[in-house]
């Protein structure tokens, strides 16, 4: 079996079943093609360094392959691997403790009084600026915004990954958007 013989419409779940049953590398190739770039993208957004993101991508993929038999199919495969990716990167930064202030899972309420930020404010921003702002805001806020707007996860899915209640997730998204707007205003005052 060659990679090109596997139909592009074959679901992730079927590919996993076949890979576990046959250990044929063609199935691994398909999974790698579908997800490695996305995993790398998340790693580079969170770790801010290309070489570290490449190493992390390799380790995350190994983790996924070694735990593939534990994937129960309760969630989408993409949600499962993104969950491994986010948790891996967050743990990596925690271990290094290079910048503890970036990890603060804040309990501030000062943002609650501010207006809600429209989705369009974030979604229609220039990519260069988005990149700069994501580098400035705390890690947990960045993660939750990536889950919502890049991975298009539902509140329930984010709640499963972050181990927080759905209402807590909604509140965290709201605050992350407010912090995003504040950072934008601080950085681009002239606009």
């Amino acid at each position: 079996m060659l990679t090109r013989d596997i139909p592009s419409t074959m679901s992730d779940e079927d590919i996993i079943k076949e890979y576990l049953a046959t250990q044929n590398s063609a199935y691994f190739d398909v999974l790698y093609k579908r997800y490695s770039g996305k995993i790398f993208g998340k790693c580079i957004s969170l770790l801010k360094d290309e070489a570290r993101a490449a190493d992390a991508t390799q380790e995350i993929f190994m983790k996924i392959l070694l735990n593939l038999s534990k994937f129960s199919g309760k969630s989408k495969f993409s949600t499962w691997i993104y969950s491994i990716t986010y948790n891996f990167c967050i743990d990596m930064i925690r271990r290094e403790k290079k910048n503890p202030s970036m990890l603060v899972d804040d309990i501030e309420t000062k943002y609650d009084k501010e207006d809600d930020v429209e989705d369009a404010y974030l979604l229609e921003m220039k990519v260069k600026r988005l990149k700069v702002i994501l580098e400035e805001i705390p890690l947990m806020d960045k993660s939750i915004l990536l889950m919502k707007y890049q991975d298009e996860m539902s509140i329930k899915e984010i709640s499963g990954i972050t181990h927080k209640s759905e209402s807590a997730v909604k509140m965290k998204i709201k605050r992350a958007k407010q912090k995003f707007r504040k950072t934008y205003k601080d950085l681009y005052k002239e606009d």
Partner: peptide, 27 residues
């Protein structure tokens, strides 16, 4: 509506193209 987050993801995918074969070999 645009999605700048998706555009950022595309940029990262392009950046990954160069690294991809090396990482795959290591895995």
């Amino acid at each position: 509506m645009n999605n700048s987050f998706k555009e950022l993801e595309k940029l990262h995918l392009e950046q990954f193209e160069k690294k991809s074969p090396e990482i795959k070999n290591q895995i």
